[in-house]
C-alpha cells in the first residue's frame, strides 16, 4: 500500500515531466553553482534571475517566444554586469544592483500595465513545476549538455580564471571571454529553470548545493560532481515530498537543500573540531 502511494504521482504525466525537468535543473544549477560560490558571485545568481524576469515580462507582453526574449535579455544583462564591474569605479555588487533591479522593475511595470500577461509572468516569478511542457524538458536538457560540454572543454581556463584571474590573464587565458561565457551560461540556466522553481527561489538552488558540497571536499573536480548530485537528489526528493505533503514544489526543494546544508555544516564542523582536538589545538 505504501509503495503504491509512493509511486502514485508517477501516474500523472504532468508529474513525470515536472520531476524530469526539476532533477536536470537541480543538477545544472548545482554544476554552475560551484563557480558562483567560488567566485563569490552568490548575489549574481539572485540578480540575474531578477534581470531575466524583466526579459520574460517583455516577451510575454510583446508576444515573442519566451526563451528567445528572456534569453537575449539575460545574456545582455550578464555582459552589461561584467562590463560595468570591470570599470573599477564601481564594484561588481553595484553593477549587479543597477542592472538587475532596473530590469526587474521594468518587468513589474510591464506586469502592472498589461494585466493580460500577468499569469505567464507570475509563473516565471514563483515557478510552476507542475505545468512543465515537453519544450521545457528539451530546453533544460540542451542547456545542461551545453554547460557540461563547456565546463569539460574549458575546465582549466575556468578553474584558473576563478582561482586567480590576474595570473590567468598573464598566462594567456582570455579572462574576459571566460567571464562572459560563464555569465551567459548562468543566464541560460536561469532562463530554462525559472519556470520550474521561479526567479525568487532560483538563487538558492544556485548557491546552497554548491555551498554544501564545498564543505565536503577540498577538490575542485570533486565539487563539480558532488554539487550537481546534491542539486539533482534534492530536486527529485523535493518533488515527491511536495506531492505527498501538498506543498509548493519550489519551496519544498529549497527547504530540502537548506536541510542538507545544515546537516553537512554540522557534520563538517564536528569533524573539524575532532581533527583540531586530535592535533592538540583544542
Amino acid at each position: 500500500m505504501l509503495a503504491f502511494d509512493l509511486f502514485e504521482p508517477y501516474g500523472f504525466e504532468f508529474f513525470q515531466r515536472g520531476i524530469i525537468v526539476a532533477t536536470i535543473a537541480g543538477a545544472l544549477c548545482g554544476l554552475l553553482g560551484v563557480f558562483v560560490v567560488l567566485r563569490g558571485m552568490s548575489y549574481i545568481g539572485h540578480g540575474l534571475s531578477h534581470a531575466v524576469f524583466g526579459g520574460a515580462a517583455a516577451s510575454a507582453v510583446i508576444g515573442i517566444n519566451f526563451f528567445v526574449g528572456a534569453g537575449i535579455w539575460g545574456i545582455i544583462s550578464g555582459v552589461l554586469i561584467a562590463r560595468v564591474a570591470r570599470r573599477r569605479v564601481l564594484g561588481a555588487d553595484a553593477a549587479i544592483g543597477v542592472v538587475t533591479t532596473a530590469s526587474f522593475a521594468l518587468g513589474l511595470a510591464l506586469m502592472n500595465r498589461y494585466g493580460q500577461a500577468s499569469k505567464s509572468i507570475e509563473a516565471v516569478l514563483f515557478g510552476s513545476v507542475l505545468g512543465v511542457k515537453v519544450a521545457d524538458i528539451v530546453a533544460v536538457s540542451l542547456v545542461a549538455v551545453f554547460a557540461l560540454a563547456v565546463i569539460v572543454a574549458w575546465y582549466r581556463k575556468l578553474l584558473f580564471s576563478t582561482f586567480d584571474p590576474d595570473v590567468a590573464h598573464v598566462s594567456g587565458v582570455n579572462v574576459s571571454v571566460v567571464e562572459v561565457v560563464l555569465l551567459s551560461l548562468l543566464s541560460l540556466t536561469i532562463l530554462v529553470t525559472m519556470r520550474v522553481i521561479g526567479t525568487l527561489l532560483i538563487s538558492a538552488l544556485l548557491v546552497i548545493p554548491a555551498a554544501a558540497a564545498r564543505m565536503t571536499s577540498n577538490s575542485f573536480s570533486k565539487l563539480l560532481w558532488i554539487s550537481p548530485l546534491i542539486g539533482a537528489v534534492t530536486c527529485f526528493v523535493g518533488m515527491n515530498v511536495s506531492y505527498h505533503l501538498d506543498t509548493s514544489a519550489s519551496a519544498t526543494i529549497i527547504l530540502l537543500d537548506a536541510l542538507v546544508f545544515i546537516v553537512v555544516y554540522t557534520v563538517a564542523g564536528t569533524r573539524n573540531r575532532m581533527k583540531m582536538a586530535s592535533l592538540g589545538h583544542v
Partner: peptide, 23 residues
C-alpha cells in the same frame, strides 16, 4: 584565497590552461 579547493599540483598545472584543455 587559501581556502580555494585546489592542491599544489592543480595550482601549478593551471598555467598550462592555454596549451592543454583536457581536465
Amino acid at each position: 584565497d587559501w581556502y580555494f579547493p585546489v592542491t599544489v599540483e592543480e595550482v601549478i598545472v593551471m598555467t598550462r590552461s592555454k596549451s592543454s584543455w583536457w581536465p
